[in-house]
Structure formats: structure tokens, C-alpha cells
């Protein structure tokens, strides 16, 4: 059956989800919403409650962060097709850590929080994959942080 094939392929291309069995991927695709955004639309704001994660099908989006939530936000990254947006916030109940604004017309697959969590409960492979992903990000963040600290120390002494 070729139904939902595009979406399933898209999900399979995400490293975190790659090892899920075919019917689970299909279920996830079936249960997700396909949403499209115009240029300049906002997917969500920093500080919002997180209810879903997004997988970009086409288009691009800016990641905007402001220091205290109210002041002017600065773009810290740009995301393109196949990138996952907002997956961390749906794993535990933390507010969105950044604002996502599209920089051109964007199509995405919206995966609801309940569905993602349920999938993880059912599939240890997925849970492990998510864990791996998070640890990798943590490692990267830690490295960035120590580099930044060194930078600060260097600037202070220098």
C-alpha cells in the first residue's frame, strides 16, 4: 500500500525514529497532522506550553531565543527539511525554550505529545534512540559550555 508513504519515508529519515517497525511509523504518520505555514508565521513562542513536535517536510524556520522571554529575540539557528523541532519540550513538561518562525513557506508533520510519549512506552527501541539523541545533545551542550567558559575566562584575563 502506498498510502501515507511520503510521511512514513519522512519519519524513517529521522535518525531517532529510523528503527521503529513499519506499522508503528505508519501509525505515527496517520495520527500526525500535516500542517503548512506561510512565510513569517510562528509555530510556537518561547514560554508556551509544549503540545507537539514538528518535523519539517519542506521550507525553513528560524530559532529565536530571548534572554528573559520578553526582550528582543535573536536568531540562534536555522532549520531546514528533515529537522525535528520542539521534541525535547514534549518529553517533559517544560515550556518552549525558543520561538520558531518560518523564513519561507513551510510544510511540516505535527506529532502530538501524547502520541509520541505513547510510542515511547510501547517501543524500547524508540525510547533508547531518544535517550541517545538527548545524551548526544547534552554532550554537545556541555562541550559548548566549557568552550564558552574558557572564552569568558580568556576575555576576562585578557
Amino acid at each position: 500500500m502506498s498510502k501515507l508513504k511520503d510521511e512514513v519515508d519522512l519519519l524513517r529519515s529521522i535518525p531517532m525514529l529510523a528503527n521503529l517497525p513499519a506499522n508503528k511509523l505508519k501509525l505515527l504518520a496517520f495520527a500526525s497532522d500535516r500542517v503548512s505555514y506561510e512565510k513569517g508565521d510562528t509555530l510556537f513562542h518561547q514560554g508556551d506550553d509544549a503540545d507537539a513536535a514538528y518535523i519539517v517536510i519542506s521550507g525553513c524556520a528560524d530559532v529565536l531565543v530571548s534572554a528573559d522571554g520578553d526582550s528582543e529575540a535573536t536568531a540562534v539557528a536555522q532549520l531546514g527539511p528533515n529537522s525535528v523541532i520542539g521534541d525535547m519540550a514534549i518529553l517533559c513538561d517544560i515550556p518552549r525554550t525558543a520561538t520558531i518562525r518560518t523564513c519561507e513557506k513551510l510544510d511540516a508533520l505535527k506529532i502530538h505529545k501524547d502520541h509520541m510519549l505513547d510510542m515511547m512506552k510501547e517501543s524500547p527501541t524508540l525510547a533508547l534512540a531518544v535517550l541517545k539523541e538527548i545524551v548526544q545533545r547534552l554532550a554537545k551542550t556541555t562541550q559548548d559550555l566549557s568552550e564558552a567558559r574558557e572564552e569568558v575566562a580568556r576575555l576576562q584575563t585578557g
Binding site: K3, N23, L27, F30, A31, D114
Partner: peptide, 16 residues
């Protein structure tokens, strides 16, 4: 068929 393929092994109260 699609419904059976996707949902058969889920418990009835599953959010899906």
C-alpha cells in the same frame, strides 16, 4: 484494512 493494520495491537484507551 488500514485501521486493522495500524490499530489492531493497541489497547482501546490508547490516545491514537
Amino acid at each position: 484494512e488500514t485501521a486493522i493494520e495500524l490499530f489492531a495491537d493497541l489497547s482501546p484507551d490508547n490516545p491514537f
